[in-house]
Write a protein that binds this DNA or RNA. Sequence first.
DNA 1: ACGCCCGCCTGTAAGC
DNA 2: TGCTTACAGGCGGGCG
Length: 249
Amino acid sequence: MRSIRRHPNKKHFISKLEGHKLGAVRRRGKYLVIKLDGGDVLVAHLGMSGQFLRAKGLKEPVTKHTHVVMTFTQGGQLRFVDPRTFGELFVTSPDELDNQVPELAHLGFDPVDTMMSWTRFGELLAVRKTKLKVLLMDQKFVAGIGNIYSDEILFAAGLRYDRLSHSLSSQEVRRLYRAMVETLQEAIKHRGSSLADEQYRDLFGAPGEYQTMHKVYDREGEACRRCRSTIVKVKVNGRSSFLCPQCQV
DNA sequence: ACGCCCGCCTGTAAGC
DNA sequence: TGCTTACAGGCGGGCG
């Protein structure tokens, strides 16, 4: 039961959850935080392959890799399915979440729900002196951006993954900030990106649609939608990255 | 103190 | 056909 690894055992996790009502759902970076009546919160991270799926009835077959099943008194179930087990669920108090869980406590600003002036953003970029892609994926710098959207953001900004954060002109800083906010908003609007294996699915099992709008990610060898150059794939810190060598400088 | 690589898992697809 | 290898949305630990 790797998905509840922050609890001493299964019974402990269940005892914190059972009998409680799920309340407001919020997102913090890549974490979901669900209020429980009684004051605790249920925290979830989907990792690489995690899915929250709704089951209408108890008779729906429980598929392989279903790690947690929550059955509601009013009917139906919420199931946590995760083949690769990199995801996790745990119950904690809001105070511990803010102070004792470093991954949450140290999250950077969230470009989707926090406005920041681009001059402030430029200051933050200048002090870090690191490659842009690495920085965008650093949850302590900015929360919620991973491998797909860092590539899409950098394309939208017209910047290469290996540009150093302290080398940007003020115009480039503005372009990057804008690209970050707009790319994430568009991706959310189109319900995220499901790759070929469609492991990312929403609560009702439907895949996202933003993958059809990707400009670079998973488009190696295809024509750039802007300039018709060939999209290139490179390795950055062991992760695949995609870019248009013409549009990104 | 940092940047980078590896391992954690399972499933699938490509390569030989 | 079948075995082996590479790779996939993330992220923490440990190495040099």
